[in-house]
């Protein structure tokens, strides 16, 4: 866009507003995490009366945060890997093959995005229990159950985005690979996947974030040994005191990995969206 001078001022004002809006809660989170307890209990203050790192020490004792962290990490990583793998195959199929039921599949998968979680929370839980009783594969209360659930949550969006992305990759590329003696799978893995890596990264980030932040299903489907951060964080305010400084410190600690990863990968995300969803 070609800009006149006044537009620069519009940009400055607009971007300042957006920055303040986006950052104020982050500022509150960071400064509150550095405050001693009285600072967060009596009135708001912009800056700690005394900067302390004690909340960051205390959070590990108040609730078993480290255990929750490990659980979240395992569940989210496994869900992401599985979701991306399955989505790559599914999206490739939709993008490159014609087969009976293709439309039905696409529409059905996408429409699951609008299912209210409340509707199938209890049924899903009962299903998991029954599968456990019938086959011995323990889905309820286990990490495996959460992994299966979360990977399915991100699957529709992942497939849909990757279909768009794969469509944008010239078909000649995989045909060349086929001619070189690769099977369709080989063509996918050696040619299409590398070419689609920004899209795949974008999908992976989305899948990881979905799993890392889910609250509702985690609250019913985990027990003490498998509890994730999203549920575990509530432990700071259900006891006989609300340790706001610790809540903020813990929020910060659990946010850092995702935010860092997200920001690190954001260029792929933009590139992925450009070619995928945007098409």
């Amino acid at each position: 866009m070609l800009e006149p001078h006044w537009f620069r001022w519009v940009r400055r004002v607009g971007l300042t507003f957006l920055t303040v809006f986006a950052m104020v809660p982050v500022y509150v989170m960071v400064t509150s995490a550095l405050k001693p307890l009285p600072d967060v209990q009596d009135g708001f203050r912009w800056w700690p009366s005394r900067v302390t790192f004690q909340p960051f020490v205390d959070i590990w004792d108040t609730v078993p945060l480290a255990d929750y962290f490990v659980n979240s990490l395992i569940v989210s990583t496994a869900a992401t890997v599985c979701s991306v793998t399955i989505a790559v195959f599914a999206a490739y199929t939709i993008s490159r093959h014609s087969f009976r039921g293709r439309r039905v599949f696409s529409v059905t998968v996408l429409s699951t995005q609008m299912f209210p979680g409340i509707l199938f929370l209890l049924p899903l839980f009962l299903l998991f229990v029954n599968i456990g009783n019938a086959t011995g594969v323990e889905l309820y209360g286990s990490r495996l159950g959460l992994i299966v659930t979360y990977l399915t949550f991100s699957l529709p969006f992942a497939i849909w985005m990757l279909v768009g992305y794969f469509d944008s990759i010239p078909r000649d590329l995989d045909e060349a690979a086929l001619v070189d003696g690769n099977g369709p799978i080989g063509a996918l893995l050696r040619v299409v996947v590398p070419a689609a890596s920004p899209g795949i990264v974008a999908v992976a980030v989305y899948a990881f974030m979905t799993a890392w932040g889910e609250v509702l299903f985690a609250s019913v489907m985990t027990d003490e040994s498998t509890r994730t951060l999203a549920v575990g964080l509530q432990g700071y305010s259900t006891q006989n005191n609300v340790y706001w400084n610790q809540v903020m410190a813990a929020s910060l600690v659990v946010s850092v990995p995702v935010v860092a990863g997200f920001l690190f990968l954001q260029r792929y995300l933009v590139a992925g969206l450009t070619a995928g969803a945007v098409k």
Binding site: A22, G213, A230, L233, S251, F262
Partner: peptide
């Protein structure tokens, strides 16, 4: 910076707003 609110886990952002 603009993307941070989206990257933050939902509950941490909302808890902060509650505060």
């Amino acid at each position: 910076l603009f993307l941070v609110p989206y990257a933050l886990p939902v509950y941490t952002g909302v808890i902060t707003f509650g505060f």
